[in-house]
Simulated scan of single mutants.
Amino acid sequence: MSLWSTYRSLTPKTRALFGVGVMAWATIGLWTTPQVENALGMQASPSEKEELDRQLAVRISRVGGDGKSDERAH
């Protein structure tokens, strides 16, 4: 029996409780992550955060065209 069919065979109340439990577990994990990182010494330094922000920055560049504004758009 597959995982999906096993899940579907549960009663609706049990599936709802399972979903609420998964959401609660995720919320607790997101809420406690900073404290766990600090306790394990895994907190990023400000320079590491800046480097990550720089690497994840979205760069937009125009492709094609002759560099003039498109007068048909006005």
Score class of each variant (00 low, 15 high):
39 A>Q: 04
2 S>L: 01
26 A>T: 13
6 T>G: 07
67 G>L: 10
28 I>D: 03
1 M>I: 08
57 A>Q: 13
50 E>W: 09
74 H>M: 07
68 K>E: 07
63 V>R: 08
22 V>K: 08
66 D>F: 04
66 D>V: 00
6 T>K: 11
62 R>Y: 06
73 A>H: 00
19 G>D: 09
35 Q>P: 00
55 Q>D: 03
66 D>G: 10
73 A>E: 00
70 D>Q: 07
73 A>S: 03
45 S>D: 09
42 M>K: 06
27 T>W: 01
2 S>H: 00
72 R>H: 10
17 L>V: 03
6 T>S: 13
18 F>T: 11
56 L>V: 01
24 A>I: 06
47 S>V: 12
59 R>I: 02
27 T>F: 09
15 R>N: 03
45 S>E: 06
44 A>H: 12
33 T>A: 14
11 T>C: 09
33 T>R: 14
54 R>I: 06
29 G>W: 05
11 T>P: 11
22 V>A: 08
50 E>V: 13
49 K>I: 15
17 L>H: 03
18 F>L: 15
30 L>Q: 10
13 K>Y: 03
68 K>W: 09
46 P>Y: 04
21 G>K: 02
63 V>G: 04
37 E>A: 12
19 G>H: 06
64 G>F: 02
30 L>I: 11
5 S>V: 04
13 K>P: 01
73 A>K: 01
29 G>H: 08
66 D>W: 08
23 M>G: 11
1 M>T: 08
51 E>H: 02
52 L>P: 02
50 E>D: 15
34 P>N: 01
31 W>S: 02
20 V>H: 07
59 R>Y: 01
22 V>W: 05
36 V>G: 01
11 T>F: 12
27 T>M: 10
35 Q>R: 06
19 G>W: 04
69 S>E: 15
6 T>L: 07
14 T>A: 14
50 E>N: 12
56 L>S: 08
70 D>V: 08
25 W>Y: 12
61 S>C: 03
40 L>M: 04
55 Q>L: 06
63 V>H: 10
38 N>S: 06
57 A>M: 11
12 P>W: 00
24 A>N: 05
11 T>H: 13
47 S>F: 09
63 V>Y: 10
22 V>D: 02
74 H>S: 12
52 L>S: 07
55 Q>P: 01
24 A>M: 14
12 P>F: 02
8 R>H: 05
67 G>I: 03
59 R>H: 05
62 R>D: 05
65 G>P: 00
32 T>E: 12
58 V>Q: 08
59 R>M: 00
53 D>R: 15
43 Q>W: 10
19 G>S: 08
13 K>T: 10
24 A>K: 03
24 A>Q: 05
70 D>N: 15
14 T>S: 13
70 D>M: 09
60 I>K: 13
61 S>W: 07
68 K>S: 12
28 I>C: 06
69 S>K: 14
61 S>T: 11
21 G>T: 02
71 E>F: 07
20 V>A: 12
21 G>Q: 01
19 G>I: 04
43 Q>L: 06
32 T>A: 14
56 L>Y: 03
36 V>Y: 02
53 D>E: 15
41 G>M: 05
7 Y>W: 14
52 L>T: 11
35 Q>D: 08
32 T>Q: 15
15 R>A: 03
57 A>L: 00
33 T>W: 12
12 P>E: 10
17 L>E: 14
58 V>L: 11
